[in-house]
Design a protein around this nucleic acid. Sequence first.
RNA 1: GCGCCCGUAGCUCAGUUGGAUAGAGCGGCGGCCUUCUAAGCCGCGGGUCAGAGGUUCGAGUCCUCUCGGGCGUGCCA
Length: 574
Amino acid sequence: MRIEHYLDELAAEAIMKASGVAAPALLRRAKDPSFGDYQINGVMPLAKIAGKPPRELARSIAENLASQEAISRAEVAGPGFINLHLSLDWICKQLRSMGADAKRDGVPLVEKADKIVVDFSSPNIAKQMHVGHLRSTIIGDALIRLLRFVGHEVIGDNHLGDWGTQFGLLIVGMRRFGSRDELKRNPIEELGRIYKLANAAAKQDEAVADQARLELAKLQAGDGENREIWKSFLETSRVELERIYGRLGVSFDTWLGESFYQDMLDDVVADLVKRGIAREDGGAVCVFFDDISELAALKTPLIVQKKDGAFLYATTDIATALYRRDHLLANRVLYVVDQRQSLHFRQLFAVMAKLGVTMRLEHIGFGSVLGTDNKPLKTREGNLISLSELLDRAEERAAERMRCEGLNLSAQQISDLAPIVGIGAIKYVDLQQNRLSDYQFDWDKMISFKGNSGPYLQYAHARIQAVFRKGGIEPKSLMTDTPLYIEHDTEIALAKQLICFADTIHQAAETSYPHLICDHLYSLARLFSSFYEQCPVLKAEPKQRTTRLLLSSIVSRQIKRGLALLGIEAPNRM
RNA sequence: GCGCCCGUAGCUCAGUUGGAUAGAGCGGCGGCCUUCUAAGCCGCGGGUCAGAGGUUCGAGUCCUCUCGGGCGUGCCA
């Protein structure tokens, strides 16, 4: 059950009864425990409009709410806040129902399911993936898991950068400097190498540049040999990408790269022109936005065809969106792409609107990767750590840690756990902060297992499992219909945090902010650690013991579920 | 030039879309392992929310300006 949602409705009804006006209750979680658990902030603005004294209005609303089962006390405070104290009995009731709901841990499904395409990861197959590419992959994967869990139908699409001007150069480079064997072994590295060489050659020698343009034109015209070389680029790269995705536990429903849409582009442009949306300007075909003030001020059109007749990624994006509407039957598309491309997406979405497309199109932007000097990481230098090396080192660090903890884990167990803990740590750093903020890549922080980190949450989960193991108790066997005895401060705090789970999950899904889940889980794990220190579970008296076991069990399930929604595993021991 | 974003503790960041006394982590200092995993817990210290105006019952959050930083900006993706 979504507690906050529920209370907000109760409050809105009470406001309606007291004032006869349908006004938002503006219910929020109280920051300070002395203000209760939730507070209603909507009375003051309402009183203003109604011309009534706010405290008086608040009093009649509060009286109305006090009779609700969920609320033990509702009191007017300050200029017209209403502080709500939840009834402990009611909280326990919620906990029991969460405890009984093994399938969804009390998280309801959305009322209306969407069909959503999530466009994410989308690496350029000719470029080495590095930490900068990680964000789209990790955030996109988390969003897919989340959206599915709340009931949407989701298609995860890897919109590969497998087409474009670079392939002319790559074909020339492959013929001149390339090695088929090397392409098989280390495709992306080999492509990077020959691209560099070909690029340098083209800069020195105009004939090479001409040759590249010619090869590109041949490729686009369907030339058999060039097509075959291009396909070998694609296939070998895919194998390598799958390897990394496999380590990350990320998968896709479709891999419809840019090349997939190429034969639709003529029609896209012709249609735009026919409808008067695009027009020729300086030899190129452009869409102008004179009618949209924010975009008009920029004075930059969206170019859909270059003067040499070639199409651009904007053209592909339009075709892609149409395809997603007409063939995938989506009503929503999420683009998990670097925030720096926001102008492109604003323009793209504006064009789609002009085309009468009513799908919800959302740019899920994220900040750039910066170095510890706060300057953007440069991709050209070799000083960037490759993705696989990053993963290796995180795993090593995790294994090392487990060896010196004295955990009685076998070498086999440690090597099985290392990827779960190490990669979990990496994913968590990425997801834990607001995605729009720039991302400071700090090696030490990336594989730090302290504080607000993935391993901290996994650790809390593992400790709970250890309690159940030691007690010889099967969590599933816990009776959820027996009364609970929540008394201790840390038990109460824990219980109040637990009942926020459904709200948090839905809020994260609605806003595409996975870090909200991290916030919840971290608070939960902290409260649990505190509880764990202060309240013995196994040695408690029978009444308390049952309660504490149930609390522990729900905490562990929430952590496991929450992490799973982020694409992170929670092992039973570590 | 124009447009977008950002400026919160020494460092890295949250801050629930305008709510009450601004919070975490890391780092620093001091405690806690014969008791369910110390990757932990408890405590202390740390702030002109860049600055100045404005809007109102109420501003880190909204509007204007100034300073500082980042990014984007017609034929790359």
